[in-house]
Design a protein around this nucleic acid. Structure first.
Lengths: 112, 112
DNA sequence: GCACTACATCGACGATCGTCAATGTATCGC
DNA sequence: GCGATACATTGACGATCGTCGATGTAGTGC
């Protein structure tokens, strides 16, 4: 899959799996940042909510089920977007999020 | 695989994949703790060093390549062991670590 | 018993994190 | 223009994290 293909635009996909080879410092830094995005239960639930919905999810539908304030949810969504796990699109007054399965595939590939 | 089998002794394996279903709070908390163990570059490199070696690795061989002090490496190894990603066995004066591939498989299953 | 070794634990430090209330910014309808 | 809405940003707070030096705890060999 794409996870095994080395490209200049996807620093995650270039990393060698933890299970088969030793990581250099640069790869370890990049991977650690991605796993850090998954290291908070609120972010895991936000991501799960988006990936389990087919298509896209409005930001306004994330605040209430997460049980956190609007600024807090916005903060966590920014972390997920920056990690490449979710894409963000503003249309009019609303923001729509979509899962980025390629990055999840890449992280999964690193674990084995 | 074992990751799909519900067992009372493996709280990770019981969790539903992020990609297919919504996580409840308990699963999210457990998973977040496991991913947090992978969210530090030093721990990723320590884990990579152990998993890439066939068999076991002595704790004394982890300090120098990690570039951290002995207490710091001991601290990180404890986190990896507590996360179930590595097993620890003391024999005489030395401590030997082994990868725990089942837990890595479980985490990978959660990502997809 | 004693000295030595390998690793763990403690205590402290600055840095980062998660959280919220307050405020800022962009977009809509009028 | 104005007011209302949706989301982002700021600033602050306590909590947790990564790190190290110092110390503690087993185990070995004498």
């Amino acid at each position: 899959m794409a996870a095994r293909t080395k490209t200049a635009t996807d620093p995650i996909a270039c990393c060698t799996p933890v299970r088969t080879d030793s990581l250099d410092e640069v790869d370890a830094e990049l991977l650690a940042r991605s796993f850090a995005a998954l290291s908070d239960p609120i972010r895991l639930r936000l991501l799960s909510f988006i990936t389990s919905a087919e298509g896209e999810v409005c930001a306004c539908d994330l605040v209430e089920p997460s049980g956190r304030s609007q600024p807090t949810v916005s903060h966590h969504m920014k972390i997920l977007v920056d990690a490449g796990l979710v894409t963000r699109e503003k249309r009019g007054l609303w923001v729509w999020y979509r899962a980025a399965p390629a990055r999840l595939d890449a992280l999964r590939a690193v674990l084995g």
